[in-house]
Write a protein that binds this DNA or RNA. Structure first.
Length: 587
RNA sequence: GCGCCCGUAGCUCAGCAGGAUAGAGCAUCGGAUUUCUAAUCCGACGGUCGCAGGUUCGAAUCCUGCCGGGCGCGCCA
């Protein structure tokens, strides 16, 4: 359930992507050429050619089918190409090597397809998620602790998945499941009552709360009496003691104020912000329900669910001291979400350390008869070159400091450039560029790889980075301005999209891959696939920009290239926006 | 001990529904600006895809074992 799935790309028009159309076309031919072998048809699919010397798309299925059909791959490829009807998109279909079927798009078709893309607000991306509801659970920081760089992946990746699914037409509910309940509050309240530094609280609320927690927790670890008092405080809070409750509300309010400031800065909003406390009073009912299904046993005083059949460790659903823990809360949360929103899937975005927990609690949910797909999208832990960071070791890097630093570096770069921009404009650009760089650094790599944080990498402003993409976009838009200055009397851009020069064709072919790249990135929960695509498109466009004249080109071609540039700009901007990254007007 | 993940160029990483000579960025070196934004482009250099087996016409990609690293394994979330 936590494994990445094959993309369940919708098949067939209306609203099929180019790869889907070509795949259908190949499969139909296969069924015709090999009646009675329909079961093998789904082995045929079109994919982007590995090398453009072979064409734009290819189908490699003949080699794999040879065994099943007891024919040579070459014969199969030939038999297929013999029955393949002409395809409007293709200039040529060629069998090569051992049995590759190479497909080359026709310039005329690309020209028309680009015009259609230009006319389409969705850039030809099908609404694969229309009528479907999905809930995303991401970010989920802990109250009374600062957001540090360890929170950025869940927040940024989760938000990108959220935006991507919305664009595909899914009804998305984003929910920030705050860590706002549990044992830590007993410790914190006790610390507050004994060590409070009011001046610090006024100056730096979260820093003050964090310090209180650390100090109180240290005392707890060496002083059994203190530990007992902390437990007392927790019991008082959970029993609804007004003083305790008021303190807790203060902690939550102070933290949320800070979190919201950061979310605003990150350009992230949640539909819901239901922390663990929201489900607190539903926990006894969850235990009852587990008991009613005969799932609960007692072990060392705790209530547990055994998962021996699934070869998983047992899961504690109520501690020996009578308190509930996170597993029970998570089950309650699923039950409440299913009842309130009836989503077809609930997706959790957290780091890899929680994999076992999710396997356990997903299994229990299935035992309870929950049908909703539960999926854990996990990513590798972020660490520092010297090792894992932790609040205790005091080596955390706060998220805000990272963002400040990113903006600062972007600002320095702008200052050193010769531009006519005002200081205010420069600061605005630096904000967009710096934030984009930080987000892109996380979104452009495979989520599952472990990330070793370095300032240099997180803040890179060149190469495969957000500023590169933003810059390509800004330049692509800029040509329109120049064109209008140079040709004020032009009759407009209502011209056919010309696909002639190799550099122009490279851009055209890539533009038309946008629907496939976006759909795949979304349905596989892998924003880095979209980032890869955007970088590839931006590179192709930069080459085009550098090598092919626009304003000097003959009339007609000139307008076509402006139009192509604008389409590139729209595509890049749409893609970046779906990653949560904005594009400045100038840079 | 058991489980999950990672190991690809000097560095950081893509690629992994098996496919044609293994890609990019950074770094290094050499070029390009009377012309659309040089935060750019072109070229060079650079790899026994951790090791060893296996499956296959074909393996960086799938399977097994080993080595190295990260993380997890009943009252934290």
């Amino acid at each position: 359930m936590t494994e990445p799935q094959k993309p369940d790309l919708p098949s067939g028009p209306p609203g099929a992507t180019l790869e889907q159309q070509l795949t259908q076309w190949l499969q139909a031919a296969f069924v015709q050429a090999y009646p009675g072998q329909e079961a093998l048809a789904d082995q045929l699919f079109a994919s982007v050619a590995t090398d453009e010397q072979f064409g734009h798309y290819q189908c490699n299925a003949a080699m794999g089918l040879a065994r099943h059909l007891r024919q040579s791959p070459r014969a199969i490829a030939d038999a297929l190409s013999a029955v393949l009807p002409p395809h409007p998109a293709l200039a040529s279909v060629e069998v090569a090597g051992p049995g590759f079927i190479n497909l080359t798009l026709s310039d005329d078709w690309m020209s028309e397809a680009l015009a259609a893309m230009d006319d389409d607000a969705r850039l030809l991306v099908p609404e694969a998620g229309k009528g479907r509801t999905i809930l995303f659970d991401y970010s989920s920081p802990n109250i009374a602790k600062p957001m540090h760089i360890g929170h950025i992946r869940s927040t940024v990746i989760g938000n990108a998945l959220d935006r991507l699914h919305r664009f595909l037409g899914f009804t998305v509910i984003s929910d920030n499941h705050l860590g706002d309940w549990g044992t830590q509050f007993g410790i914190l309240i006790l610390g507050y009552r004994n060590f409070l530094d009011e001046a610090q609280l006024a100056r730096d609320p979260i820093g003050a709360l964090e310090a209180l927690y650390v100090k109180s927790n240290e005392r707890k670890n060496e002083d059994p009496e203190w530990q007992a008092q902390a437990r007392q405080e927790l019991v008082k809070l959970q029993q609804g003691d007004p003083d305790s409750r008021a303190l807790w509300e203060t902690f939550v309010a102070l933290s949320m104020k800070e979190f919201n400031r950061i979310y605003d800065r990150l350009d992230i909003r949640f539909d819901l912000c239901r922390g663990e406390s929201y489900y607190h009073d539903q926990l006894p009912a969850v235990l009852d329900r587990l008991r009613a299904q005969g799932l609960v046993e007692e072990s060392d005083g705790a209530q547990v669910v055994r998962l021996d059949e699934e070869k998983l460790p047992l899961c504690i659903v109520r501690k020996s001291d009578g308190a509930f823990n996170y597993a029970t809360t998570d089950i309650a949360t699923v039950l409440a979400r299913v009842e309130a929103f009836a989503p077809e899937a609930i997706v959790y975005v957290t780091d890899e350390r929680q994999q076992l927990h999710f396997k356990q609690f997903f299994t229990i949910c299935r035992k309870l008869g929950i049908q909703t797909e539960l999926r854990h999208v996990w990513f590798g832990l972020m660490r520092l070159p010297e090792g894992t960071f932790s609040t205790r070791d005091g080596n955390v890097i706060k998220l805000e400091r990272l963002l400040d630093e990113a903006e600062e570096r972007a600002l320095q770069l702008i200052q050193s450039a010769d531009t006519s921009l005002s200081d205010e404009e420069k600061r605005a650009i630096a904000r967009t560029v710096g934030l984009g760089a930080v987000k892109y650094a996380d979104l452009s790599q495979n989520p599952q790889s472990l990330v070793t944080f370095t300032w240099e990498k997180a803040l890179a402003l060149d190469g495969n980075s957000a500023p590169y993409l933003q810059y390509a976009c800004v330049r692509a838009r800029g040509v329109l301005r120049k064109y209008q200055e140079s040709y004020p009397d032009s009759s407009g851009l209502d011209v056919p999209m010309h696909v002639g020069e190799p550099a122009e064709r490279d851009v055209a072919v890539r533009l038309l891959r946008f629907p496939d790249a976006l759909t795949r990135a979304t349905l596989q929960y892998r924003p880095n696939l979209l980032a890869d695509y955007l970088f590839d498109l931006a590179q192709a466009y930069s080459r085009f920009y550098q090598t092919v004249p626009f304003l000097q080109a003959p009339e007609g071609i000139r307008e076509s290239r402006i139009r192509l540039s604008l389409l590139v700009a729209r595509t890049l901007e749409q893609g970046l926006n779906l990653l949560g990254i904005q594009v400045p007007e100038r840079m």
